[in-house]
Design a protein around this nucleic acid. Structure first.
Length: 417
RNA sequence: GUGGGUGUAGUCAAGUGGUUAAGACAACGGGUUGUGGCUCCGUCAUUCGUGGGUUCGAAUCCCAUCAUCCACCCCA
């Protein structure tokens, strides 16, 4: 028990950390190129933020939050990234600055779910948000950034699906139309879909049970019932994506599970990482700020699962460059050589080189063995003979060539390559 | 919350009731304290996730429990 991480959590071990560093750097990089700036918010928030923001009826709020009481306040580990960013935006009145605001983040999130492939209780997301404009330029830019990032990570099998889930007005109208259509078939629906009928009938369209897929044929489609304004916006979005040259398919089955979404909804889906194939998902949320008691601030953004991203990269055979070994490994023989070695190592490290020495008092053979296993590029050998002449031997670990050089020339030789 | 699979060393594993639990890789040490990658030798599970039961005898059969993986639901 003591030596077991809690269910649904994963340690990132030294052998894999470079992969995360790689995608984290690449993500920060592309965000900066697209004009986004980083924002960091706390890991926990007032529980009410998510109840209001994500929505009281959602699965996330009803059964998946890590919530506790402290000093008479109810606090919750963030289950998603958008509401906290909106909260910070309103709290610090960032709407008073130049608009739009374009922000990105790299955060851990927490949901109490049953773990499976691509789903953890403590997981990590990249996210971006654009606040302050309801123009579909913003939606297209968000999608373009997600698309280009996924491509830059070497992923080829991910497909973009877009949809419009309308605004609160047209969505309610549509739900009624859909319920009317399904009412006569209600008894034949599967158990989960009977629940969905009241709570979120749009999900029934996406049910995997073959009987239900049959029942749902010919059902009215949301897209046919969105209002004029939403239709214009959706056409606008498609036009912008076409202009970017980004391919997509319109999928009326894309239904986001958080209440705050309006109009644009999209997902980037992989078929090769198991059932949880959504690598990146997002959309527009024009009423979230107001819902939280702030001024009306339109917004659009996405969340991108880092664990799922890495799974997809692996499935695509992407090779992330492995970190190199030390520029130089200092092999020492004898007490005096050790002292000289330590001093040399410190100097070289201060010069910005990656230098290591044996910490286990190994013999020469095993020092070399260690240098070899850790992929050191050069070995610097210091023994009695070298010390007498104020020299060291520098050995190229790949070719095995070894040359004697004076102490004062070490730095320039190492920096040559 | 529901359903299914799996648990033998750091990793991959053989072993399906009979006394000392194969093997490979890794790790560590050594082959006369001055040289790695190859090679040779050595070390590395009183114990088979844990607890109970059946039996003369259990890693092997039964029960429980825990962990893990996968799927549903839902989402990143």
């Amino acid at each position: 028990m003591l030596t077991n991480a809690p269910k649904g959590t994963k340690d990132l071990l030294p052998a894999d950390a470079y992969k995360w560093q790689y995608v984290e750097k690449a993500f920060a990089d592309i965000c900066e190129r697209y004009g986004f700036k980083e924002i960091r918010t706390p890991v926990f928030e007032h529980t009410e933020l998510f109840q209001r923001g994500v929505g009281d009826t959602t699965d996330i709020v009803q059964k998946e939050m890590y919530t506790w009481e402290q000093a008479k306040r109810s606090l919750t580990l963030r289950p998603e990234g958008t509401s906290p960013v909106v909260r910070a935006f309103v709290e610090h009145k960032l709407y008073a600055e130049v608009q739009p605001s374009k922000m990105y983040y790299n955060i851990p999130c927490f949901r109490y779910e049953k773990p499976q492939s691509g789903r953890l209780r403590a997981f990590h997301q990249f996210g971006i948000e654009i606040f302050g404009t309801d123009n579909q330029m913003a939606d297209a830019e968000v999608i373009a950034l997600g698309h280009d990032f996924i491509r830059e990570m070497g992923i080829k099998d991910v497909e973009l699906r877009i949809n419009s889930i309308g605004c609160p007005k047209c969505r309610e109208t549509y739900r009624e139309i859909l319920r009317d259509f399904l009412a006569p078939k209600y008894d034949a629906l599967c158990g989960t879909c009977k629940d969905r009928y009241e709570r979120n009938p749009m999900r029934i369209l996406d049910c995997k049970a073959p009987e239900d897929q049959e029942l749902v044929k010919g059902a009215p489609v949301m897209l046919d019932y969105i209002c004029e304004e939403c239709q214009v916006a959706f056409d606008d979005l498609k036009e912008n994506l076409d202009a970017y040259g980004i391919e997509y398919t319109v999928d009326p089955g894309i239904v986001r599970g958080l209440d705050y979404y309006t109009k644009t909804a999209f997902e980037f889906i992989s078929r090769n990482i198991g059932a949880q194939g959504t690598v990146c998902g997002g959309g527009r949320y024009d009423h979230l700020s107001e819902e939280l008691g702030g001024p009306p601030i339109p917004g659009v953004g996405f969340g991108l699962g880092i664990e799922r991203l890495l799974l997809t990269m692996e499935a695509n055979g992407v090779r992330i460059p492995e970190p190199q070994g030390a520029d130089a490994f200092i092999v020492v023989m004898g007490a005096e050589a050790k002292k000289v070695g330590l001093r040399l190592m410190r100097t070289l490290r201060q010069e910005g080189l990656k230098v290591e020495m044996d910490d286990m008092a190994r013999n020469v053979k095993n020092q070399f063995k260690y240098a070899d296993r850790t992929k050191a590029i050069k070995a610097i050998v210091i023994g009695e003979q070298e010390l007498e002449n104020n020299q060291v031997a520098i050995r190229d670990m790949e070719s095995g060539e070894q040359v004697l050089v004076g102490m004062e020339d070490i730095l320039s030789i190492l920096k040559e390559k």
